[in-house]
Design a binder for these strands. Structure first.
Lengths: 214, 214
DNA sequence: TAATTAAATGAACGTACATTCAATTAATTG
DNA sequence: CAATTAATTGAATGTACGTTCATTTAATTA
């Protein structure tokens, strides 16, 4: 007993001496698993890899999430809820905008938000298949809520005769795919400024619904 | 020896009796791994799962691909090469089309081709990260070739003054993202016919480059 | 400070993984 | 049909996986 207590120093303390953090805060786990899962995919990331990145033993992770899957669900859910909340806040400034301006505002919001959180966006789209049916339903519902925001804007534009569009749902899906696709090629410090890219996309979106800006 | 030969019947024969195929043709392996990888992701699919689907023992797969990764590379490479070949054939009918018509032709081709091969498209996009750097370069080069086809069409449209577009590259990326995104929501037998969907998207694409059709 | 609760460790469990290989079976060829 | 080559099996190898847990360490509370 006595000897053991002296000889086997606490692993966290040793890890800290070796440069690791050794503090498995929920925030640190979230941050590191986000990066690892975005880079390698959920199935290719092990709890050991996450633990290493956090600077902790694998077992410590189970203080925060009961399973590996629960960790993934947490990442996706937090992302989508934050996205919805951010959009709700954006909306509340001016509630009754004409459809054209509402669409532009949505497009700019979506681009900015997604460019700032490429890992979350990628995971929320790519790892749906790693969820259990029940978890999947939960995430799909949040995603649907967000898509509905755009669908409503487009439907309003049709009603107002601002947009010449055949189908609000298909148009919303096409628009979202286009906007979200920025993440596949955009890198900070590239040829074009973020503002410039934003303008190009907004222009394309507005034109594609039949209301050219220029 | 003698007894063994009688008692332990060839596994392939037994599998065949049990309803499985037991013939690991390259085609069968390709087909089943395509489906499995598209559904579960490369990292989540084991050689055992593929072997089961084909109706064969895992070891038999190694007659056709030296590693699991080589199998993935084969799927992606075959897909992109077939895509490029199909587009080359589509082009050869009428070589010097006006940019507007060339863009419409490309859009329709892309939609049709991708809707017919959702698994290949999904894998070629999603599993890039599962490749080694050298393999990645190979696939990226094929993808770049395809993207360049659209970029050239758009650049020609700018030269001809048919398109009002700020940046050929960004416009090409945005257009491809929009078109490819159909696969995320399209299901055969849905509310809209394939022709209708095609028309809606072509309309949006043409409008987005500043040349409305109607 | 003492008692209590929370967090982290290190080692282990059983399972599944990609891959290999000698032996067997099937297919091809002369 | 005999000889040869190719394909497949079944079993094994070593590794890594998610998760558990008694024990130790740290943090909180009284």
């Amino acid at each position: 007993m006595f000897f053991q207590a002296i000889v086997f120093k606490g692993g966290a303390a040793l890890a800290r001496l070796a440069g690791s953090n050794g503090k498995a805060t929920a925030k640190a786990i979230h941050k590191h698993s986000l990066e690892l899962i975005a880079r390698h995919g959920f199935a290719a990331v092990s709890m050991r890899m996450i633990a290493d990145a956090v600077g902790v033993q694998p077992g410590a992770l189970y203080q925060y999430h009961p399973t590996k899957q629960a960790l993934l669900l947490d990442i996706m859910q937090k992302h989508l809820e934050a996205l919805l909340k951010a959009w709700a806040k954006e909306k509340e400034s001016e509630t009754e905008l004409p459809a054209i301006e509402a669409l532009e505002r949505f497009a700019r919001f979506h681009i900015r938000y997604n460019i700032k959180r490429p890992d979350e966006v990628f995971i929320a789209y790519m790892e749906l298949r790693s969820l259990e049916p029940e978890e999947f339903k939960l995430i799909e519902e949040l995603r649907r809520q967000y898509e509905d925001e755009l669908k409503t804007i487009i439907a309003n534009g049709i009603k107002e005769n601002s947009f010449k569009v055949e189908d609000a749902h298909v148009t919303a899906m096409a628009t979202l795919a286009m906007l979200t696709g920025i993440n596949t090629w955009y890198r900070t410090g590239g040829r074009l400024s973020q503002k410039k890219i934003e303008d190009i996309y907004v222009n394309m979106v507005l034109r594609s619904v039949g209301c050219a800006k220029d």
